[in-house]
């Protein structure tokens, strides 16, 4: 089941997709969408209370995905748990069979549906990467011996189009130093920008998986540009969507085209279809991968 680990160890072009747990206990749709990805992706990311909206937890959902025969990437943020809970959840994940963790700081609670919550951020993404690697070596973050260690594959995120970019690149280097083996990027729409970023990334022994966010309409593209940090949908793409009679179809086409272009630039793609997970197989098919 360690399909991600295997893919990282070879020169295979890595394909991952994102799955968002539901708000509630009805997991039928999530499981249905995930089952469509079987055999088509190397791993499935499971978001952790994404955008600070309270949902089914990423640990439980990762286990369900594992039971479906797919390799989950357990996304773990520092927003809701202190260092005790984080380490303890990591041990739980390991014994449940989860093998990949994506270390994230997490959105601020102000973004979500429980704005009154106390933001935790006891540790943050760089330190979390170190903590995971400490558990992998057999001790907790205070050096106490573990009875049975973990061997997680650790990932992190980076925003290739952050503005300004310099502090983001410095943080990227820190994440590499802290032990990140692979990176999944914020959505990129300008492959030139991705090429630019890869010049920095290629100095390090890490795999870069580029983010592909399915565009459903010109309106959505403009919304992303306005409100989502680090995302810049180019004017050309917005025009293409605007002129289209079937914008979703066009969005799928754009995603497929981007995947194809990125093949020669980075090590893989991470497809975020937000609510349209069932379209992922079609995107992959059209990309010719």
């Amino acid at each position: 089941m360690n399909t991600l680990k295997n893919a990282l160890e070879t020169s295979k072009f890595i394909i991952t997709a994102e799955s968002g747990p539901p708000k509630g206990t009805d997991v039928n749709e999530m499981i249905h969408c995930v089952s469509l990805l079987k055999g088509k992706v190397d791993a499935v990311n499971v978001t952790d209370n994404q955008s600070s909206v309270m949902r089914l937890g990423s640990l439980g959902a990762s286990k369900l995905i594992l039971d479906q025969g797919l390799d989950p990437i357990y996304q773990l943020t520092c927003r809701d748990r202190n260092r005790l809970a984080i380490q303890s959840d990591l041990l739980s994940a390991w014994v449940l069979g989860i093998r990949n963790v994506l270390a994230l700081t997490g959105d601020h609670p102000q973004a979500g549906d429980h704005k009154q919550a106390k933001p935790v951020f006891d540790i943050e993404s760089v330190q979390l990467l170190q903590v995971i690697n400490t558990l992998n070596r057999g001790t907790d973050m205070n050096g106490n011996q573990l009875k049975g260690k973990t061997a997680f594959v650790t990932g992190a995120t980076v925003t290739p189009e952050a503005d300004p970019i310099e502090p983001q690149l410095l943080k990227f280097e820190k994440k590499v130093k802290a032990g990140a083996q692979f990176f999944q990027t914020q959505a990129v729409y300008d492959t030139k920008k991705m090429e630019e970023f890869m010049k920095t990334a290629r100095q390090f022994q890490v795999k870069i998986i580029a983010g592909i966010l399915l565009l459903k309409s010109a309106k959505m593209a403009r919304f992303l540009n306005k409100f989502v940090p680090g995302i810049r949908v180019t004017e050309d793409l917005i025009n293409e969507l605007e002129k289209s009679e079937k914008p979703l179809e066009t969005g799928i086409q754009i995603a497929a085209r981007q995947i194809n272009e990125l093949r020669s630039i980075c090590d893989g793609v991470h497809i975020m279809a937000i609510g349209m997970e069932d379209k992922v197989p079609m995107i992959l098919e059209r990309s010719g991968i």
Partner: peptide
């Protein structure tokens, strides 16, 4: 920093 981070900007930073 709204999150009290110690190692650099988070992904939420937008044009400074």
């Amino acid at each position: 920093c709204a999150k009290g981070l110690l190692n650099g900007p988070c992904g939420g930073m937008n044009k400074g």
